[in-house]
Amino acid sequence: MNTELFNQAVTELLHRSDSRALVHVEPHFPDSRLVGGKYHMGSHTVYLYKKEIMEQCRMLFGSLAPLKAYIYVILAHELGHAEDVELVDLSNLLDGPLTVSEQAEIRLRIEENAWRYAESLLFDMDPVFLRTIIDESLFSYRQAIEPHIA
């Protein structure tokens, strides 16, 4: 199931980033959601889910033709969470008494931080391809902070 593409992305991006995060490539996400990757702060581990990444790529681009680049993007984003110096503080803020709007703004900032880091790692990637993925990823976070009109 394209194991070599995943291994190549892990090797190259860990080298580029100099990250000390562990990376585990799993066959699929253990839930019914379409989660391609996640970062676990407690263990400083990034998880990539092959089946879901392939499905996301197929849904977004209509085929698996750009799968290699897509894997790099997902991994770079998760490494962005792993290397985010604000993540602990932002996550702790989410445990406090916040309005729905304040929570949404913090969640958006966490995601935007990770995407900024990903962009710095993927300096040689097609910017239109990368922007398509970023915009799709951030859509629901941005929508959550828009004022609601009754």
Results as ranks from 00 to 15, higher is better:
R16S: 05
K50M: 15
L130D: 00
S140E: 06
Y39P: 05
E83V: 09
R58F: 15
H40M: 09
D135K: 08
R20F: 14
A82K: 08
L48P: 04
D84W: 01
T99G: 11
A9W: 04
G37V: 08
E136V: 10
Y49S: 06
V88F: 11
H15P: 00
T3E: 15
E105L: 13
L64Q: 03
I134A: 04
V73K: 06
E86G: 10
M1L: 06
A150F: 14
S140Q: 06
M125L: 14
W115D: 06
F123R: 09
F6T: 04
H81E: 04
D31Q: 15
G36H: 02
H77P: 07
C57Y: 07
D126Y: 05
L22Q: 10
Y70P: 00
A76I: 06
M54W: 01
I53H: 08
L90Q: 10
T45H: 08
S43D: 02
E102P: 00
D31A: 14
D18F: 09
A9V: 03
Y141P: 02
R109M: 12
F29C: 09
R116Q: 13
V46L: 07
M54Y: 05
G36M: 04
M125W: 01
E111W: 02
E112R: 09
E26T: 02
H81F: 01
V23H: 07
E83F: 04
M125D: 00
L90V: 04
S63E: 01
H44L: 00
I133R: 02
I149Y: 15
